[in-house]
Design a protein around this nucleic acid. Structure first.
Lengths: 230, 230
DNA sequence: CCAAAAGTGTTATAACTACACCCATGT
DNA sequence: ACATGGGTGTAGTTATAACACTTTTGG
């Protein structure tokens, strides 16, 4: 690639792809939703027995994003509603052998995330999880930071919701990600003014006054990430 | 890395590191500064003769950021005032052989960028440059987008200026990057209110009223990039 | 004195925040 | 009827933008 500094033959550096997958979990008891992620228990050295991010080696005729999707399918069994490259980690000592990890982060809708039933896969709270293998603790922290950051200036929150949702649902997503309460009135005006939602005529009646259901406007993109492939 | 999907042995994928280096050029004739970047002319296939981003293979005991710095030193001969990972490019068909490129972007101060005199290296306007090798056109577009984006919410503009500078100098940097004029009065108030500049007692007298010289306040960081190494 | 950039002041507009208040429904 | 979340109104604050104006230098 580019101007090649002279090496008789490039050394053996392996390329892996991992993905931080976020979803939302709203348990019967809790009144707030939590951000959760699936982890995989390692069945071999190094770090045998420890939890780690789902991932695998990059195939030699496989695109990196495709590898991330494959990873995601193998663990959750479903397609992500949002997928974006997070960062490339390549410190010399981050693994016993030299591995460069291209890390992606993804969003999966709550209803879909329930489908997971693989062996050695479990969902954890994204903020309070066991100590992970390799530098994955660090990676998860960074992914969470990016998620919180991005939710402030783009529309990715919809990636965690089903087709139809109320404004309270959407607000709950923001609150779970940002970790603080938002004013319902101001929240409503903000999203209504942004032309990203299409109001439907349907309502959903919980225990009180029924709320209008909205649909996401796919004309505006989930997130602007500049001039990048798709 | 992580949960390893079974491959008898990972295939031969090579890892390269490239850097998009930005600097500012203020030529005698022009009244505005331009964003410029150094390119390297390829001396071998593929794309022999075409201009490309400076870069090289990642050494097997070399960190990725170190590789980017090395690249930068080999072309400009100097250390960057700012260096950040841009993106990892790994499409299967972006090169005749499978190469994953970890791309960084960097800022170099104008006075330092004059020192370049390597063979096969030349500086080009960042917006109007010849068609580059590989997918480097695409990469440069993305790097420029990130630069313009980041200048809006962080202090990286100082990475293009010497130790002492006037507010007009700083404003010129912003104008060159954003491609539009800024109101001097409002610009002054914004940066003065942000506590990132330390006023000195020195002045610089051009052809008219002397302007106060400022120094960058290193207590606040150049840019917040979240919980990432250094 | 004049041109031009340095630097200050003023005002209009938009965005954000807090919070009071009314509405519609299940119980 | 009443508790509760859905939904609207409004006023204070803050950030931004436009632009008039004063100051200080070199020529």
């Amino acid at each position: 690639m580019s101007t090649l500094t002279e090496h008789p033959h490039p050394e053996q550096i392996r390329v892996a792809v991992s993905t931080v997958i976020f979803s939302l979990r709203r348990d019967p008891g809790d009144d707030r939703a939590r951000v959760v992620m699936p982890l995989v228990r390692r069945t071999r050295d190094p770090f045998e027995g420890r939890w780690a991010l789902p991932g695998g080696w990059l195939g030699d005729v496989e695109g990196m994003e495709a590898a991330a999707s494959r990873t995601l399918a193998e663990t959750t069994g479903l397609a992500p509603s949002y997928l974006e490259q997070l960062y490339a980690f390549g410190d010399v000592d981050r693994s016993p052998t030299r591995v460069v990890s291209i890390v992606y982060w993804a969003l999966v809708r709550e209803d879909e995330s329930r489908a997971t039933a693989q062996e050695n896969v479990a969902w954890f709270d994204a903020t309070t999880h066991p100590e992970l293998a390799f530098d994955h603790d660090h990676i998860v922290r960074y992914a969470l930071w990016r998620l919180r950051n991005k939710v402030g200036y783009s529309r990715i929150a919809h990636g965690l919701l089903p087709d139809l949702f109320t404004l309270a649902d959407l607000r709950e997503v923001y609150e779970a990600i940002l970790g603080r309460r938002l004013d319902p009135a101001n929240f409503r005006r903000q999203v209504e003014g942004s032309a990203t939602l299409i109001p439907t005529d349907e309502r959903r009646g919980g225990s009180h006054r029924p709320a209008r259901l909205y649909r996401y406007n796919h004309d505006v993109e989930l997130a602007e990430r500049g001039p990048l492939p798709d």
